[in-house]
Design a protein around this nucleic acid. Structure first.
Lengths: 391, 391
DNA sequence: TCCTTTTGTTAAGGATCCTAACTTGGTCCC
DNA sequence: GGGACCAAGTTAGGATCCTTAACAAAAGGA
């Protein structure tokens, strides 16, 4: 509790701590002495009280160097790793292309990258207390099994957690990447201070992470926020004589249904743009579409607006079920807030009275990695406190 | 804490309590003496130990009569009220038709009914510690304002909470009815013991309540679970040349979109059945449709199956965003599990890999009322403990 | 009748945190 | 520059809470 107060307030004198925590001065003094002996707290200097007239205060602060953590982002194309101290301050960072073709190789590469990052930052591996790995797929909190990781071959195999754990030898959590990105935005980005918000990742796939009261909302099987699986309508209709309908029948795959991921992810943006008449040759990726739209291409702008309207449906679904205060848009597609946000908000107004604030990610590609680091730091703080306090 | 242990275990001796709570025998004795003096705990007898050979144990139990609560269900057609003790055991119950046409009259009627139920149960009003009122609409935890209560004229007016509070003079919460139904199912019905489940209310409208770890999940503005507002697809499509599609265009209102409530609530069932050819004269309510289906009417069965398929979409949306372990179906339409569950489950298998268990409500029409009572009892237990413990 | 077993009470001790008074080290002002 | 003043930190003593250990009381069985 004292540590939490110290971390929140930074360098603080013991008298000040006594005031903010409600404890008495003697209690704070003895407890802090214990924490200092355990290496969790450090004198940070002695400040001659900028204003006051009394005796100079000795300042203490939680020592972020009491332990270090590693965050790893296992993406389809990149492996990213960062080392950070207990405050979550990044002290080392390294990305490599993900060339591994098997899950085993990926585990090895990830572990090697983690150790390399720690070494580069001048850390001995024994100082690393906890590691958090983010990857696509659903990780069941109970079984440690990764499921639905369609993009990573073999990554869903069981025993993977144990292998990673053995390679690293630190505390370990494996979590869904969208969930970690949400934590990252909560800790450092657009979601700071929000009581309930959702991070909507739109890129090569679609996913969401939900943070409620600062904690990840994971669902009954760890699959909360897997809105890529949200089935698209139309609803089943009666066969036989129906009521006359003047509305034009919609065309395209959405009329047939399918998971929402297929309708809004990067590939869908490309397909959409091409179907509206953009040339196949110069329209290879979603990035091309957004670039063309920014250059003023009317067709591309139309495709972007259509994508925005589809995303509005995703946001509306989140709003109807969760009622978040805020939705943060991220991922390769979602980051294009300059083009997407305005039409998305307009469309949302027509869809539902429940309209959360919608903004774009503040962390971009680093959201997952920083979320992993933030979560690892949190876990490490508890763990370091527990172990050091016994001794 | 001792009280919680007592309530969980029922009548218990002090020695037994010391064992289960981890406290020492003297501590339990003195604490229990204090609770007894405060009137929160009572000797329930002395059992000569059915089996053991030792001294007879004096049994204690939490006194449920230390306070009473009222639960009220303000529905469009009925006002229901129940009085219960701190255990949530109902000691009085009364329903009246809701004839009030203005919010003011409804407040008056509800308060009168509450007092009548208490009197009938032989309670003095001063014994009533807390009241919980369930009604349609979203109640913002911050402002106490009820919003979106489309079915109750004037109920959304501000100041309503304060008027009700003044009329009753007890602790008061006003909560969404679907949320309370979820709490009811958690406390007494199909959701018992579930870590995360959703109650899906399908009747004259559509709503859901979410209970996570025994606590209501209310969302950022108290609107979590308002899936009646879930917009229906189809997704917006590109104008211009689209990819060829062989799928037949769906017909009916769902092709035009709209909130999900319009597609699955009782009125929609009637419209659906009629559109499939059921006679208007004998198809007045959803109940008629289900009755006909049970009698073997093929058209009605078709309509029911179609409704089940639509509900499967609602369940799939819940699953994709929340990932509940369990979905409990309730309300005038939802209660027909014998007809709905099988096709719903079949359809769900085609829609999504995330398939929660789906069952029907165990409490039926009483879910909201019992949920209100359960929540009121919980609030009252804390309140009674706090106030009596000071004195 | 006495022994065993379990309940509940009494007595003593320790952990934790508090209040109150005091010491220390500093700024401010004459 | 020396004392007044002020806030930081320490020391001493005490209250509260809970624990362990031993004991007294009550019941069943030999």
């Amino acid at each position: 509790m004292l540590l939490d107060a110290l971390r929140a307030a930074g360098s603080t004198s013991r008298a000040e701590l006594a005031r903010t925590t409600g404890l008495s001065k003697p209690t704070v003094s003895t407890a802090l002495a214990g924490l200092e002996r355990a290496g969790l707290v450090r004198r940070t200097g002695e400040v001659s009280k900028g204003q006051g007239r009394g005796r100079a205060a000795v300042l203490y602060a939680a020592d972020p160097a009491a332990g270090y953590v590693i965050g790893v982002d296992v993406g389809r194309e990149w492996l990213r790793a960062a080392a950070a101290d207990l405050d979550g301050t990044v002290v080392g960072r390294r990305d490599t292309p993900n060339t591994a073709r098997t899950a085993g190789a990926m585990v090895r590469d990830a572990a090697r990258l983690a150790r390399a990052v720690a070494a580069e930052a001048g850390l001995d591996w024994s100082q690393v207390v906890h590691t958090v790995v983010g990857s696509p797929g659903v990780t069941d909190p109970g079984t440690h099994r990764v499921r639905y990781a369609v993009n990573l071959p073999g990554w869903g195999r069981s025993g993977l957690f144990d292998r990673l754990h053995a390679e690293l030898g630190t505390g370990l959590d494996v979590l869904n990447d969208a969930n970690l990105a949400a934590l990252g935005e909560y800790a450092l980005g657009a979601g700071q201070g929000s009581r309930l918000f959702a991070y909507l990742w739109v890129g090569t796939g679609l996913g969401a992470g939900v943070v409620a009261d600062g904690r990840l909302f994971r669902g009954g099987h760890g699959a909360a926020g897997e809105i890529g699986y949200l089935p698209m309508f139309p609803l089943p209709q009666a066969a036989g004589p129906g009521p006359a309908t003047g509305a034009p029948a919609p065309v395209g795959f959405s009329a047939r249904g399918g998971p929402m991921e297929d309708a809004v992810s990067a590939d869908a943006v490309v397909a959409l743009a091409r179907s509206m008449g953009m040339p196949e040759a110069t329209t290879r990726t979603a990035k091309d579409v957004f670039a063309a739209a920014r250059a003023g291409d009317a067709t591309a702008l139309g495709a972007v607006e259509c994508e925005a309207a589809r995303l509005a449906h995703a946001v509306a679904a989140l709003a109807a079920v969760l009622d978040p205060e805020l939705v943060v848009l991220g991922g390769g597609v979602g980051r294009n807030g300059d083009l997407l946000l305005a039409p998305l908000r307009t469309c949302l107004r027509e869809l539902t009275p429940l309209r959360p604030r919608v903004v774009t990610s503040a962390l971009g590609d680093d959201a997952v990695l920083l979320g992993a680091v933030a979560r690892a730091a949190e876990a490490a703080r508890e763990r370091v406190f527990d172990t050091r306090h016994d001794a």
